[in-house]
Amino acid sequence: MADNPEAMPECDSESSGARSRKPASNTATEQSDPPEGSMFECNICLDTARDAVVSYCGHLFCWPCLHQWLETRPNRQMCPVCKAGISKDKVIPLYGRGDTKHEDPRERLPPRPPGQRSEPENSAGFSSFGLDGGFQMSFGIGAFPFGFFASSLNFGDMRPASPQPGTPQSEQEQFLSKVFLWVAILFILWLFLA
């Protein structure tokens, strides 16, 4: 029955979005009363979105509304408008100006996921000297491929997390590190003997 074209909600939301564009242009004149068919209504409570988040499929919600929707159906995490797959961490918060916080902290929901923010491209070249990107220092004895004996001091440098114990990947890595340990011991012995 889902292939009933009229029954799908997408077409409706599209058309109402198209219709709403006109009144949104004269918001300045009717600011006290939220204009009918505003573009910035939450798709769930139909009110102006507060703690606004937008899904990757582009639909706007209040964070409390979307949170409750996703809690209501834990096994079917889908966008209430277009039924795309969504999840609590895959939404983008919208931070507007004039956001006044006057809510009871006891009633707070889990906070919105933080915005994804990347540093601007650094075209200044040498002047930055890598200090803002993290500081890294290594020292130790050992020749190039046998860095395992070297200890490192790394700050602000995310290393990939070690794999879960028990998985084939962690077994492989342990095997590799043993092999390199033996190679290094043999190499040092050879240095002493030579």
């Binding site: 029955m1 889902a2 009933n4 074209p5 009229e6 029954a7 909600p9 409706d12 939301s13 798709n43 769930i44 139909l46 639909h59 509304c65 929707w69 079917r76 889908m78 966008c79 209430p80 408008v81 039924k83």
Partner: peptide, 24 residues
Amino acid sequence: LDILKDQWAAAMTLRTVLLSIQAL
């Protein structure tokens, strides 16, 4: 009708429900 059961989505309204039933 599936949208009155498991295919319900919070963005649907009385209008879309009535139109869906009419389409049915």
